[in-house]
Design a binder for these strands. Structure first.
Lengths: 250, 250
DNA sequence: AAGTTTATGCGTACGTTATACGCAGAAGTA
DNA sequence: TACTTCTGCGTATAACGTACGCATAAACTT
């Protein structure tokens, strides 16, 4: 306890409900919860780009600078908004084995991010440590409780699944946003991407991409099926399974 | 060719060198390449946050608005900067099997992103389509050429490996940035995170996280070993392998 | 009851940002 | 020589995050 006498960052104290009011001074007219909820509302209806301190304040009918009595900076607000948006993880299913559990985890998380596409656009600046993020992490680790995996391997598995899910949510959200921006359907936006690839990627210079295009893999608009996402998750789970049996047998 | 008569977006035309000069008018005093290089230089030395149109222009000794003759918006510049920063992929190793190839791909890509941490902080808005991104994609697909994977599976594999690599690069860059910001070492920053987790995550409310902490998995600072990253990639490759043999045998 | 302490709401101000607009001048073409 | 087209860029605008300080409200102290 010599040099590392650093306390808990204010945002985290707020997120974990550790803010002690001294009792003095005027009674607060706002709560962090209301501010965060207002931010989430703006983000949900108008996108993350519309979330400014002024916009959130006007949503609450207060002055912009009033928010700074509850939040040190906008980044803090964004972190709290993400925590509120992901909410609590679903309850553990009793008879579920680890593979079904992790698959369900990925699907639930993806659906959640799909419902609030702005969440994956919030720039990340720290490892996850807000209450609901920890709760989701706990949920995932719990699913792997009875496996042969080491603890750090479970953590790594959680990171992998989260990363793949977030990445897929971001990619599809980008495509959707481009589609909405151009007034076309998601399928048309996908087709537009395939067309661009054909136009720009010379098959002589990029033979493997040329093969990909020639294979027609990009032509069928099976986008809503999330095939690529499923494939990535399933292969990773295959790998986990192989790793476990290898450990048991070896 | 009825309604999809949309042309190539200007940024992409620029990135692929498809800009045709009419010959008229004053000779341009700048080139896109110089602008992009200036942006990369600023990002490399002062971080992505320091990259403003004004800052890049001053780096070149021109007025801010001059840049807009070459770039439609700042986002376009950022996209071109990313493309320039990742550069061309390494050459294919002759006798390398797909597994060794994809492993090397991941390591090379990670090293590249580590060397320019700002790259993973550029907000992504579209699927990858700039020349060097396509080149990397081609490189990855080429590695899988002789495998039993379907084309869309190869694409999915590329996406998975890229996502995991980018995610890991971002996470470690965040920790490094926090460390530098607090004037401490990366190991100390990691230890600080573990300490926060211990402080905030109640083992009764979060039993699995409690177990993780109790296991001591977070205490050993084996950060530079990139163990978690390696594990994720290795399990995915295990899964790919299992999938292939299953396909061959089935 | 009076004074002290501390917190709140917020008006004002500042520095930065991206970028729309339009003009002067350069280099071609007719 | 006239006309077209493109360049560099000065000016201006709207939006942004947030530092600062003041008036005031509530509780604690004496």
């Amino acid at each position: 306890m010599s040099e590392s006498e650093v306390g808990i960052p204010p945002v985290l104290a707020a997120a974990w409900g550790l803010r002690e009011r001294s009792g003095k001074g005027p009674r607060p007219g706002l709560t962090l919860e209301r501010i965060v909820a207002a931010g989430v509302k703006v983000a949900a209806s108008e996108g993350l780009g519309a979330v400014s301190m002024a916009r959130v304040a006007s949503e609450l009918g207060v002055a912009t600078m009033s928010l700074y009595r509850y939040v040190r900076a906008k980044d803090d607000l964004l972190d709290l908004m993400v925590d509120a948006a992901i909410g609590q993880p679903p309850p553990r299913q009793p008879g579920e084995d680890w593979r079904a559990g992790l698959t369900r985890f990925a699907h639930t998380y993806l659906a959640l991010l799909r419902g609030q596409p702005w969440v994956v656009r919030v720039p990340i600046g720290t490892p996850p440590i807000t209450p609901n993020q920890i709760a989701w992490m706990d949920h995932g680790l719990e699913i792997m409780r009875d496996t042969a995996l080491a603890h750090h391997e479970r953590l790594s598995a959680m990171m992998t699944i989260s990363a793949l899910t977030r990445n897929w949510a971001l990619l599809t959200a980008d495509i959707d946003a481009a589609a909405r921006g151009g007034g076309i359907s998601t399928e048309q936006a996908m087709a537009g991407y395939a067309r661009l690839l054909k136009l720009l990627a010379d098959p002589v210079r990029f033979p493997a991409v040329g093969d990909l295009i020639a294979s027609g893999a990009l032509d069928n608009p099976d986008e809503p099926a999330d095939d690529d996402f499923e494939f990535g998750i399933a292969r990773f789970l295959d790998g986990l399974e192989a790793h476990m049996t290898r450990r048991k047998d070896g």
